[in-house]
């Protein structure tokens, strides 16, 4: 049986400026576990993009990070408005973020594509008016 290390975070939806706390903490935790820097970078970027999305669109949510022998799994869950058209949302440049978010350097429609780019596996389950759960995995070298 493989041993799992799990980290759980609440992502505060009211405070756009605090986004990044969970991913920064995960980065520190993974460093302590001796995970390779390039893997840590991919995990923390994918997670930060997810955090930002939850703050911009969903009023916050939860983030769970599990470290197994084979991969690092990030599960982001929110009870936000859901994603109407996932295929469209996955297109680089497509964004429904408001202008004030764009002026902060986000909202360019790169969040979801970046999450896919930096992970080996990504699954989006979303229902309009119910919420969204995104599962991402970054494989660990065997």
């Amino acid at each position: 049986m493989s041993e799992q290390v799990i980290f759980t975070f609440d992502v505060d939806g009211d405070d756009f400026t605090s986004a990044g706390q969970a991913s920064s903490q995960v980065k520190r935790n993974l460093r302590q576990l001796g995970i390779a820097p390039d893997i840590i970078k991919r995990v923390s970027i994918a997670m930060y993009e997810g955090e930002i999305n939850m703050v911009i669109h969903a009023g916050g949510g939860t983030a769970n990070v599990a470290v197994t022998e084979e991969y690092i799994e990030i599960v982001l869950s929110d009870q936000g408005p859901g994603i109407k058209d996932i295929t469209q949302a996955m297109q680089e440049g497509f964004s429904t973020a408001p202008d004030d978010v764009r002026s902060l350097g986000f909202g360019a429609g790169m969040g979801l594509p970046n999450m896919k780019r930096y992970t080996d596996y990504m699954d989006i389950q979303s229902q309009v008016d119910v919420g969204t759960t995104i599962t991402m995995r970054v494989n660990l070298p065997s």
């Binding site: 400026t17 930060y48 902060l104 350097g105 986000f106 970046n114 930096y118």
Partner: peptide
């Protein structure tokens, strides 16, 4: 563009930007 920078800046780079909001720290 923060999403862009995050993915492309390398460790040890000096990052030049005109953005000043707190997210640049993350």
């Amino acid at each position: 563009l923060l999403s862009w920078v995050m993915g492309r800046a390398n460790a040890g780079d000096a990052w030049i930007t005109i953005m000043s909001n707190i997210n640049i720290l993350a």
